[in-house]
């Protein structure tokens, strides 16, 4: 194996700046996409547990559609196809005036895709509570929104903290797909360093370390949260 090691490349300019900027974009894409995924996913998850057949049907349809098309294809659909099928004015706005087109598209695509996964977690959390609590809420004279607000959701979210954590980490990792439409996030930045310097080993190592450190840090932190919020009297899923 013939290779010239040069680890100093990682701390010299402009490469260190590329790495830091890439990391910044990774964080920005992941957190913005998570915001969409969490709110929309929760809404859809709740819809799938309500008594209305229409709402349940919409939730199921959304999940089946978004989970069964590869994320990369969804990126391309939002980036290349969506602006074309809009009415003229909207199409022009998306193509010419929308701020940060690649970033915005990546956030929307990743957010909507992940919402389908969050939806399934929220649904399973609510279903895990069992019908007794809902019946009890009804017997106390709660309206349906009140049952969700005061009975089902506070317990449901606590049950699904571990799977939600891994969904968040999946968003964090999937944000690397944004490079396919031109967002220079962490993976793209290291690829760029490799192409400019041929020091691929050092560059990819940097990205690898950053991704795994963040992952293990988030997992460690969430384990503490999970222990503190465990629902008394239940076998916490994936605890310990």
């Amino acid at each position: 194996m013939n290779y010239n090691w040069d680890w100093s490349i990682l701390v010299s300019e402009p490469y260190m700046g590329w790495l830091l900027q890439g990391f910044g974009w990774t964080i920005a894409v992941s957190s913005a996409a998570w915001l969409i995924a969490f709110t929309l996913g929760s809404t859809l998850g709740i819809m799938r547990t309500t008594e209305s057949r229409l709402l349940r049907w919409i939730g199921t349809g959304y999940v089946e559609l978004f989970r069964n098309v590869p994320l990369l294809v969804q990126f391309f659909l939002w980036f290349f196809v969506f602006p074309e099928i809009l009415p003229d004015d909207a199409s022009r706005w998306v193509k010419r005036e929308m701020p940060l087109p690649a970033f915005t598209t990546a956030v929307v695509a990743l957010g909507l895709y992940t919402a389908s996964r969050v939806c399934e977690q929220v649904r399973s959390g609510i279903e895990a509570i069992g019908p007794g609590q809902r019946a009890a809420g009804k017997a106390m004279g709660f309206s349906e929104p009140q049952i969700y607000r005061y009975v089902l959701l506070p317990v449901g979210y606590r049950i699904i903290i571990p799977p939600l954590t891994s969904e968040f980490l999946t968003v964090f990792k999937n944000s690397s797909l944004a490079l396919t439409i031109g967002v220079i996030e962490l993976t793209a930045a290291t690829r760029q360093i490799e192409e400019y310097t041929f020091q691929g080993f050092e560059a990819f190592t940097a990205a690898t370390v950053i991704y795994s450190v963040i992952t293990f840090a988030v997992m460690g932190a969430m384990r503490v949260v999970e222990r503190r919020t465990r629902v008394p009297g239940t076998v916490a899923l994936g605890a310990k």
């Binding site: 690397s176 490799e194 991704y211 293990f216």
Partner: peptide, 14 residues
């Protein structure tokens, strides 16, 4: 499991 698949693909491609 802590790495994005794209990064792993780049790693082995290199």
């Amino acid at each position: 499991r802590s790495l994005p698949l794209i990064l792993v693909i780049f790693w082995f491609y290199f």
